[in-house]
């Protein structure tokens, strides 16, 4: 068993088996995506049939996508998604970055208490406080507004925690030097720390955008008007309206909603994977 024949790399039995397993797994993983796109290109009679084929016999993309955009305000949903996700991210960064900086580089009364609150906040998923948030927004008359979609996520304790961990690794001398140069604390945050924290900020941004673009629970609770729907709510509403028969337009709508993040991911894969691994391990 010890005498191995000199085989070129990549041709051994093990690697053939490995690649076969990977191909099979990849086929299963991609199947829903492929089927979604394929169905969005097919005419109704090709969809509601037991004759399964991947490529449409009759190309029905224009009809399906047009009817998806006509049946529901899909463009409006996408715009809502962008507005909500971007507002959440902007608020989270504006509030979390200075706080994280102070937590890691300044001495002040209440620092330990605040950090303790951040750590505790990490333990609580927002679903658990959805009930009082809902009651509160109801009392303020803010339900079914953009504010309702954004407010609960204005603060991200995860963002504060992640940034603080990153800032801890930046030498205090850098901050002291900036203070000696006469910069204000706020100037240090935006001019010194933020540029240095690129990887942490991009990791957090990816994390936040993915979470809120795809979030279903809170928008479901917070809004009921069609005009405020985010993409996940929109696609479900579309499915419910059409009673599940016109799969072509439905799959077209799903494709449109899945596309932005998947495209962003494909364009900046390394950044996404590193960001997710980075955020995951903190």
């Amino acid at each position: 068993m010890s005498r191995l024949p000199k085989l070129p790399r990549g041709l051994s039995v093990a690697s053939v088996l490995r690649n076969a397993a990977l191909i099979a797994l990849a086929a299963v993983t991609l199947a829903p995506f492929v089927w979604m796109v394929a169905t969005s290109l097919k005419a109704p009679d090709e969809i509601l049939t037991r004759d399964f084929h991947l490529w449409p016999h009759r190309f029905w993309a224009a009809e399906n996508y047009a009817s998806a955009f006509a049946a529901v305000p899909l463009g409006r949903y996408l715009l809502n998604g962008v507005v909500v996700t971007a507002t959440i991210l902007a608020l989270q960064l504006l509030i979390a970055v200075p706080a994280a900086f102070a937590l890691s580089k300044s001495e002040f009364r209440g620092r330990r208490l605040l950090f303790g609150a951040v750590l505790f906040g990490l333990l609580v998923p927002y679903h658990a406080i959805a009930v009082p948030l809902f009651v509160g927004l109801h009392a303020l008359g803010l339900l079914d507004t953009y504010a309702a979609l954004v407010t609960p996520f204005a603060i991200s304790v995860f963002g504060i925690f992640l940034m603080r961990q990153f800032f801890q690794g930046i030498p205090g001398e850098l901050v002291d030097a900036a203070r000696m140069d006469g910069m204000s604390e706020l100037a240090i945050v935006w001019r010194v720390m933020v540029p240095a924290a690129g990887p942490a900020i991009s990791a957090f941004a990816i994390f936040s955008v993915v979470a809120h673009w795809n979030d279903y629970f809170w928008p479901l609770v917070a809004v009921s008007s069609d005009t405020l729907f985010t993409p996940p709510l929109g696609v479900v509403a579309f499915r419910n309206d059409d009673a599940g028969t016109s799969y072509g337009p439905l799959m077209a709508a799903a494709t449109v909603i899945v596309l932005p993040l998947v495209a962003a991911f494909l364009l900046a894969q390394r950044r996404f994977l590193e960001g997710i691994a980075f955020a995951g391990f903190k």
């Binding site: 993983t29 169905t39 673009w213 795809n214 439905l250 799903a254 894969q269």
Partner: peptide
Amino acid sequence: TVFFLPVMASLIAMAIVWEFM
């Protein structure tokens, strides 16, 4: 990239695709 794709995709949209499948 292939195996990570489902993590990125909107679960709710993909759930509807699964429902169809």
